[in-house]
Every structure is written in C-alpha cells, then in structure tokens.
Design a binder for these strands. Structure first.
Lengths: 188, 188
DNA sequence: ATTTGACATCCTACCAGTAGGTAGGTTAGA
DNA sequence: TCTAACCTACCTACTGGTAGGATGTCAAAT
C-alpha cells in the first residue's frame, strides 16, 4: 500500500469516527508516520483530501455492492449482506462516511457536495434495484414506489448506526435492521 | 429572554446546523452581541455549555411531547405530530440536536454522554408509550416488541433528517416519514 | 559507463489565524 | 457594598498551509 492509499485509509477512519471537523492533518501525520507538511504533497488541502475520500469510499462500496448483486441469493439476503457491511465497521466505532459527512454538510466546502450527493444517489439506486428484484421474485412485497422504500431503508440504516454508537448499544442496531428486513418480507 | 437563554438558543441552533466541533465561542458572541470572554461568565467552558444544551433541548422536547400526549387524537396522529416537530426545524436546516451530537459522540467530553443517553432514552420511552397506546386502541399493529419499533422509528427519523438536508431534498423526508407511518397503521 | 536533469517524496522552519480560556478592571442595580 | 454582567488585553495550543532545501530514483544525453 503506497503512502497515498495509507493516508486515505487513516483519514477515512478518522472521518468515520470523529467527523470532518473532528480531526486535523497533525492526527493523520502521527498515525501514518510522516511529518505534517509532507501530507500536502499528496493532498494539497484538506478539502481536496475530503473530495478524494468521498470518491474513494463510494467506489469501494460500489465494488462490494457489485459483488453482492451477483450472489445467488434472494433479494432480502442481499439487503442483509449490505447491512452486514455496515454492521462490521460499527464494531470499530466506524459509521458510514457518507452519513458522517451528511451531518457536517453545512460546514463543508461546496466542492465536496457533488461527490456526497453522488454517494447517496448511488446507494439509493442500488437499493432500488435490489428491492425491484425482490418484488418481481415475490420475496419482497412493497406498497408504493420502490425509491421511497430505498430512501426509508437508507435512512433507517444511517440513523441506527448513529444511535447504536452513541448509546453504546450495538444490539439495538441488530434489532432495528432485523425488524426492517422482516417488514419487507411481508407487506412493507 | 435573558442573556443565558439567548446564548442557549443561538448555541443550540449552531450545534443543530454545524455540530459541536463546527462552531466556536466567537460565533456565539457575534450573533448574541456580547464579547467572547463575557460568554464564560454564563458558561465557564464549552463542555458545560454542551451539557446545558442537551439538558435544555431534552426538557423542551419533553414539554412538547407532553402536550402531544394529551391531545384527543389517535396514536398515529400523535406520531405524525412528533414528526412534524422535526419537519418544521428542517426548513431552517436544523436537524435534531441529539442526532447531531450522536454523530460527534467520539469527540465529546465524557461528561456530556449521560445527558445524551438520557435524551435518546426519553425519546424511545415516549415513542414506546404512544405505540403501545395505538396497539391497544387497534390503530396500530406491530409484530415484535414495542421498544424495537420505537428504535426503528427514531432511527428512520434521524437518518431521514440527515439525508434530506445533505441531499437538499426535504420532500424525501416527507415521503419516508409518510411511508413509515403508513406501515404502522397496517401490519408493522 | 557516466553524467545530467527532472521529478517524487520527504524534511525543518515558519506563518497567520483561530481555538478555548484567564486576569483583572468597569459599571450598574439592589 | 456586594454582586451580576459586562469589558479590554492577553495567553497558549493548535489549525491548515507555505517556503525552501535534502535525498533518491530513473531516464535521456554525453
């Protein structure tokens, strides 16, 4: 892993734990083992780093979602796999980078917003695709537009991550996500 | 409104918009019209201000929820009123103070955590009460424990606030909350 | 084969601006 | 005369960022 990737990984974790205003270049430098000004060689400004972070996170997730998409399992099992992705990172107190940046949105530079919107659009799109698939295979039953359900699913997931971490109650995340999956299997 | 209250109001709005690490005493001072060091007369430290903020917000909400509780309307209409509270503040780009602090939780002083947990516990308790009421009056039908549904409702609400603001799409908030209310009225 | 130059990657030293906070004094009202 | 509520002046630590130099690598010119 080259330095640029190392920086991105460390910075991503810092954002996921502390938010975009909750860490500094000094924090990254210490963890990655180079001096603070050297970071500017790889990312000339914190804003540019932020943009790269979103891009990187989005494409990482996109890859994993692609993998899940083609698995020979039912749509609701695919949704469970999607949830499991976030569940794993929750063990290390990481919540979704997109959700974290969404909280900080009013303090972010405008140049970061398009990437952030694309992240959410991508998530909604994937969820909608899986929900449609589940509907046509009769594994999922929904009332109303699929995209509305995708929005609800994403909202619940993001909120559950936040609340579970703040309450120190990861079991609550499991119960909430189990409940929403169960509701999709029946009548939605 | 005395100065202490004014400070609390301004600071609350700053937290709701920008997070606890997204504003400074200087920001408050400018908006409230006194000098920065004078703030320390009212709140000796930012942490103490934070604690007061949570306490204040919790009791404000508690009052409004108490008002809703006694209205002569069905349980699902009470939930709609609860959601409307947050919907109103979303118009000014304010999201829930509890949700905002939950995002920042790993950067907060330990002394702020009990208050934050109490906020969520109070919300869950109220939602559970209303859901039970709706169940016994047959306006709401749930599968599984009421508190699980309360958690899910709160998660969805918090997530929907975040995402709606970040995407600049308040209509999405309306659709998501309408969907969750509709699902409670039928089979949950 | 060797020198040269260009570029990448890192460094030390430094900067202005801002963070939260303190010291100590003034003013006004009970 | 005490106290609440404010002020100016100031402090240290940290913020993101810059300037300019050292080192290494690698390819083209000699």
């Amino acid at each position: 892993m080259d330095m640029r990737e190392q920086i991105l990984t460390i910075a991503q974790h810092l954002v996921q734990q502390r938010g975009f205003n909750g860490f500094s270049y000094a924090d990254i430098a210490e963890e990655v083992g180079i001096r603070k000004p050297s970071l500017h060689h790889h990312f000339p400004s914190k804003v540019k780093l932020g943009i790269a972070l979103i891009e990187n996170y989005t494409s990482q997730l996109e890859t994993e979602l692609g993998r899940i998409s083609v698995l020979p399992i039912t749509a609701d099992a695919k949704l469970a796999s999607y949830i499991a992705l976030y569940r794993t990172s929750l063990d290390a107190d990481y919540i979704c980078l997109g959700g974290m940046l969404a909280s900080d949105v009013l303090t972010l530079d405008d140049s970061m917003l398009p990437g952030l919107k694309r992240f959410f659009a991508m998530s909604i799109e994937w969820l909608s695709k899986i929900l449609s698939e589940g509907e046509s295979m009769q594994h999922i039953k929904l009332k109303g537009p699929v995209t509305d359900h995708a929005h609800m699913l994403l909202s619940t997931l993001q909120g559950a991550l936040m609340i579970a971490r703040a309450s120190g109650d990861v079991a609550a995340f499991d119960r909430t996500t189990a409940l929403i999956l169960a509701s999709l299997r029946r009548k939605g």
